[in-house]
Design a binder for these strands. Structure first.
Lengths: 225, 225
DNA sequence: CACGGCAGAATCCTATAGGATCTGCCGGCA
DNA sequence: TGCCGGCAGATCCTATAGGATTCTGCCGTG
């Protein structure tokens, strides 16, 4: 009965586990990732660990140097953070516009329920057991992205959230109440089916978010590549 | 002297090789990917093949079903192709605008030299030994994306090209001369440092490209997920 | 003729072993 | 003091083996 039947592969479990450790900062940005040590921690062999790391590399969460192993992706520099904000605006503002045009009014309204920050409503099977609020924020943006009706657009957006998340854990940032209020404005415009208002609210939110986070770079500058 | 010194990992070679086979349609979309068969072909063990496939999965070129192996990602449906075009417009039009604002005038002008379709100028070390023209098209868009000055934006754009490429190989599409002419217009606007004109030219190009390719779906509809 | 079940083969997934490479430390020399 | 070369330990990369699971073809039954 020890391993009688597995409905999921070890590699998948290991992948989620390592991803969680990276998101929780158990493995700090820039730190070297020891394959055998991870394998011992997870009580598996190095083989599935290597495969999981290969996937995480394509996700941009770790980097590989030939014959030298993996390292956790370092934090973004100030320039890179600016570029990330710029890219978010290019993707998420149109996503909000599209979501407001979604034909299913009920689905649009359901987004409003996602703005309330319930700390206990987070799916425990998901890998997001880390800092509750930043996970909630990511969940809201993910739902909105999927509501755009363009899965490829949603994937591109979701892919960016991992990097943002790491920075949020390094600073307390501005008051969460502001973020919730901005989310509420976006959700309201989408529920009302007003694309222009939704786009404007999202632009406002992203601008405010950038302002809340950019101050962290003035004090602690990593400077690393 | 058999394997005296390797400056690159076997996994990297295998990754590029499999990617090439997918791009060349040696492995057809939707086909099952046999790990051991690939390992025999490449004269390596299954271990590096598995690791390469894990990376390709994150790239979206293959899919994994637990306990059942990998399959090459099927061709896009008509809906997905529309979504891809929409996403390209969101990313590449701003990229053209940014490229036109690039401070280095020489770099902007260098893009113009990339519009000529020299079939022999393709880097042989690159994995793009497949259909020459579509590779040239991808190279042009890649260079333009990098010229935007936003590496994250460029990565998001490049990530979309793989899927587009597969479709280009399934149809002769419209005359290549049109594509080259459109590229020339985009490059000229960027070289001249005119963001609005560059954005307009890119919009035109993407619209025309979509029109050239969308007709292929009316005849052969895969219908698969 | 259609459908469900079963045995064999093929394939996948994980663990382990061994050769090759890199990193850190230590002593010698300018 | 500062720099360079070499050795030991740790780590990585690849190959191979074996248990577990899935797929395929065949047979029997309704």
């Amino acid at each position: 009965m020890s391993p009688p039947a597995r409905r999921t592969t070890l590699v998948d479990d290991v992948y989620e586990s390592i991803k969680g450790q990276l998101m929780d900062l158990v493995i700090e940005p820039g730190a070297r990732v020891n394959i055998e040590a991870l394998a011992r921690d997870l009580a598996v062999s190095p083989t599935p660990v290597r495969e999981a790391l290969a996937r995480l590399e394509s996700d941009g969460l770790v980097r590989k140097r030939a014959m030298s192993g993996y390292t956790a992706t370092p934090l973004l520099t100030a320039d890179q953070f600016e570029q990330l904000c710029q890219l978010r605006a290019l993707l998420e503002v149109p996503a909000a516009r599209l979501a407001a045009n979604h034909p299913d009014a009920a689905a649009r309204a359901a987004l409003t329920s996602a703005v309330t920050p319930p700390s206990a409503e987070i799916d425990p099977t998901d890998y997001r057991r880390y800092a509750p609020f930043t996970a909630h924020d990511a969940a809201f943006h993910d739902r909105l992205a999927r509501l755009s009706g363009n899965p490829m657009l949603a994937d591109s957006i979701v892919r960016l959230h991992a990097h943002l998340h790491l920075h949020r854990l390094y600073l307390p940032a501005g008051p969460a109440t502001d973020t919730v209020a901005e989310h509420r404005a976006v959700a309201a415009a989408i529920a009302a089916g007003e694309p222009a208002a939704a786009a404007a609210a999202m632009t406002e939110h992203l601008t405010a978010t950038r302002a809340r986070h950019i101050v962290a770079f003035s004090t602690t500058e990593t400077g690393k590549e």
